[in-house]
Nucleic acid binder design. Structure first.
Lengths: 401, 401
DNA sequence: CTGAAAGCGCTTACAG
DNA sequence: CTGAAAGCGCTTACAG
């Protein structure tokens, strides 16, 4: 029996019957059994390195070497492989490559997607709000990743969905994780950090992971000083982002500190709670006005999108910005400079944040070395019109190289 | 010699010496050689299914079955596996899983990142322009993908970079591709379509791939009629997007057709070329004004971001919108409703576009079945203020469920 | 320079 | 129900 049955001896005998250039015929059979006559087994699925080797008349090792530029294959070998690759339309399977290399060249990124909330009157907030800031960060990550031949694998989490399962699946598909703000609580981050390289963006510093954020305190302090000392505003308020966001807390604290230190009054209360989105900012103003509250001279918002909603709501109610109330943002997203009035804000190096997060993760992936320090990037005040400053006369849409 | 050397007999003998719970010690050795004394080989790298099996005292097959909910493992088996998984912090390797399943559960998405262009006076345009529309589409893809346990693998391409290599690498890491507008020329798309399932967004229909787009013609025709018939504008112009964008061409053609049919005048010329970004729209206005051109009564822009820049530049020059010139957009990105004036535009179902692109691709991945028809989603005119309509009195930031 | 062989970490018929 | 074995498609020492 042993010598009659032509059972597979090595993996590559499975491929003996492939017809080069023949289009995939059925696409249904998964395991190719050795053909009876050993002559016309149909080709299934995309071509593999075995198919290329057979067509080129070389070993799979040579194919691999040509494709990866290892050693110096003979010109003849190289040409035959390249011809076969082109003929078959061969694309190497990343999974097999990742398995042997122990490197997927994939960075997992987890963002928090906006919740669909229901307000008191049973109306849903728009769930298609824009994630400008996170999207811009992801762009920074992607551009940096590209230079290392990495790609960006995105997953979003929301409240009440079994996120752990989703995140673990993401980990299994990547070499390391970058977590946006408020994606996991610090405990979970710490635990994850033991299993895989993790970088957090604007998160809580956790041993074993690296946190990348920008200097909220300095930026907000500079803004506060500008509002109080330069413009002379005596009453100020803050419209917060998500209450569990470290960025939000740092900005708020710095504002209160500076405003108080400069002898102005900080107005606060439960109504001043936003959610990082324009809708949230607008709602705060609506509620404030509806309940007859007085408005301070200046409102500092947790981010630009909130400021956008605030300006919108104020103008709707006939309140001029900055004439009636000054409004400022945080982030300096691209649209901020195209608004009326142009938005005064604190500039974060948004794409740099992403790029540095990736580079940090990349170094963690490559050497499992010891502890690394958290990173804080500088911020700076961008004075435009919404704080009360005069319009600038610089070119509108261009910048110096 | 044969019986003295304790060489690996099966793959799993490699794991005999692992110390459960011990932290990864060196992290440098890659291949674990059989330990001399066969007793204290250090654990390396993250735990595998063999480690879990050993700790749980079962076979790797049982571990796999528990983890994937196949068959009905005995409660005892299940518990021991779950305990071992928790103890070791085991996360299954997606690459190995993908290799055997022939499914990576990953959708590759290619976007075109904005070019860094140099204008005539040697000044660079801001490369951090916002990709709101593509980002929103990607969100739609991601949400749909999630429901199928897929993740989104992103890669961006730009002019002059060796994109083919990058895209092929992406293909190797995913089960299928969604291509944004202007990522590849139709020839390349067609070729790729032979090798892997491909869905294009607003691309040129190609045999073997499926194109998903929205009804540009109907939307733009509706807008044009509104401007000419309802508002009575007699001169109109169009600020284009990228000249090689099918969306752009369809919108322009529909506008010209309708404007002409309605007996109004269509103004055009080389200066009216934008690039889908705010900076491009603003520059068109600047150039027009600088060269002493007269402005039409209404300007329809290729998309909302362009309109944003146009409004900005007009207002800067003291031209009221819509009083002096009416301006409209296309897309209805979230920020459009928060601008002053609120932007009249054509609404595309942005996230639906992404979701449907994914679902189409998913079905292509699961059955390599025959040809599929291209898909066109409906659009509709959203009348707000920038066309000359009065402000609406509906709630500002909410919508009905 | 090149090829035969081993092995990456999983899943799943196939027997028991 | 469970385990031993095969195999997914690659890369890379190891010999020749």
């Amino acid at each position: 029996v042993d010598e009659i049955v032509p059972g597979p001896v090595r993996g590559d005998t499975r491929h003996h019957g492939g017809v080069p250039g023949a289009p995939n015929a059925t696409g249904t059979v998964r395991r190719v059994l050795p053909a009876e006559g050993d002559t016309e087994a149909a080709e299934h699925g995309p071509p593999t390195i075995y198919d290329v080797a057979r067509v080129a008349g070389v070993s799979i090792a040579s194919v691999s070497r040509v494709l990866n530029g290892r050693r110096n294959p003979l010109p003849d070998t190289r040409e035959r492989v390249e011809r076969a690759v082109a003929e078959l339309g061969f694309i190497p399977d990343g999974a097999a490559r990742a398995l042997i290399l122990r490197l997927k060249e994939v960075v997992g990124v987890v963002i928090r997607r906006p919740e669909v909330t229901v307000s008191a009157d049973g109306i849903f907030e728009d769930e298609e709000t824009s994630l400008q800031f996170p999207d811009l960060i992801n762009r920074g990550i992607e551009v940096a990743a590209q230079k290392r031949d990495f790609n960006l694998l995105v997953s979003s989490v929301g409240l009440g969905h079994d996120d752990t399962r989703r995140i673990l699946a993401l980990v299994g598909k990547s070499d390391g994780l970058i977590l946006h703000d408020r994606v996991l609580d610090p405990d979970q981050v710490g635990r994850l950090g033991h299993q895989v390289p993790v970088v957090t963006l604007a998160g809580m510093p956790t041993p074993g992971t690296v946190n990348v954020s920008s200097d909220n305190r300095a930026g907000m302090a500079e803004l506060a000083s500008h509002l109080v000392r330069d413009h002379g505003y005596r009453t100020l308020a803050y419209i917060g982002g998500h209450p569990d966001s470290p960025d939000n807390l740092a900005r708020r604290d710095a504002l209160i500190e500076q405003v108080t230190a400069d002898g102005a009054e900080f107005v606060s209360g439960p109504l001043w709670q936003g959610n990082y989105f324009a809708a949230g900012g607008a709602r705060v103003i609506e509620n404030l006005l509806a309940s007859g509250n007085f408005l301070p001279q200046a409102i500092a918002c947790a981010n630009d999108q909130t400021a956008l909603g605030v300006v919108y709501a104020l103008v709707r109610h006939g309140i001029d910005v900055p004439g009636g109330v000054a409004v400022t943002g945080f982030d300096d997203i691209p649209v901020a400079r195209h608004l009326h009035p142009q938005l005064t804000t604190v500039r974060q190096p948004i794409t740099d944040l992403g790029a540095i997060a990736f580079e940090t993760l990349y170094s963690m992936i490559n050497d499992a070395g010891g502890a690394r320090a958290d990173i804080t990037l500088p911020t700076r005040l961008v004075r435009r019109e919404s704080c009360g400053c005069p319009p600038t006369s610089t070119p509108l849409t261009v910048r110096q190289p």
